[in-house]
Write a protein that binds this DNA or RNA. Structure first.
Lengths: 145, 145
DNA sequence: TATTGTTATACTCTATAACTATA
DNA sequence: TATAGTTATAGAGTATAACAATA
């Protein structure tokens, strides 16, 4: 069976990504999070620490880009920035319990939001689709850049 | 089988879309096309005409956004802008044969570029993935906005 | 009055350069 | 000298407002 006629990959991916992002915005707003704020909370994951530069790199942002974001999250008690005793230039960034809670709640709602889109796919297709998407995404984010 | 742990949809889609777009750029440059120029050539499709406003809407661009793009494409003989005899405000935009050739060549190379990414997927998965992607994309672009 | 195409302006987002304090 | 964090500036991309011509 030959491949069906279809738009270019980027022509499908880019609008879909935009739509997904737009759909997330109201959810994030309910938790007083910006897209970058949410990205930071996700980027901190469960590993306890990071330097700001490493964190920025992990979420593919400029190091200057996230400073205001960190300021805001810290002031609201969602993250901590502790001076590294071993290198007084660096700040160790970590999630507070409140930050973890906020992150998890926001993510749960975002996953529910995604269901609206994914519900269009039959269960078997859906599993394959997500597996493929994750494969492509992983192979891409591994790149040196 | 429960769904595997995975990043948020948008967190996978957005970087992938960016990577795909970035990979297209060198191809488009070889044909002296910008992303918007390519989008315009694709938007003109095989239907002969449009008004500029309708074309802009079809490719989800601002009507003011594409004016410079149309100027450039017209000057290079890839499109035509004919005054509509029925409504002298409107311009009927159409592809010239040269425009069609350029569009088809660029698209062929872009499809080859996509193969690098898609080659990671087993043939069966790949077909399902593309079918799903097209389904989600179509349901989304149908939206009123 | 509404609409097409256009230009000029303002705004948002991002990257670049420059500074400080440490190493 | 090199690096972490920071600030201020400049750039790209986009949308908004305003205009002339036509309906």
């Amino acid at each position: 069976m030959p491949e069906a006629k279809r738009p270019d990959l980027a022509a499908m991916m880019a609008p879909l990504a935009r739509a997904l992002t737009a759909a997330e915005l109201p959810v994030l707003e309910r938790h007083d999070l910006t897209m970058w704020g949410y990205a930071v909370l996700l980027g901190l994951g469960d590993q306890p620490v990071y330097t700001q530069a490493a964190l920025a790199k992990a979420i593919r942002a400029d190091k200057t880009r996230i400073i205001g974001v960190l300021d805001d999250l810290q002031q609201r008690g969602l993250i901590r920035r502790d001076p590294d005793p071993a290198d007084r230039r660096a700040r160790l960034v970590s999630l507070t319990p409140a930050g973890r809670t906020t992150r998890d709640r926001a993510q749960r709602e975002i996953r529910e939001q995604e269901e609206i889109l994914l519900a269009q796919l039959p269960a078997a297709d859906r599993r394959t689709f997500l597996r493929c998407l994750q494969t492509l995404w992983a192979s891409n984010t591994d790149r040196p850049d």
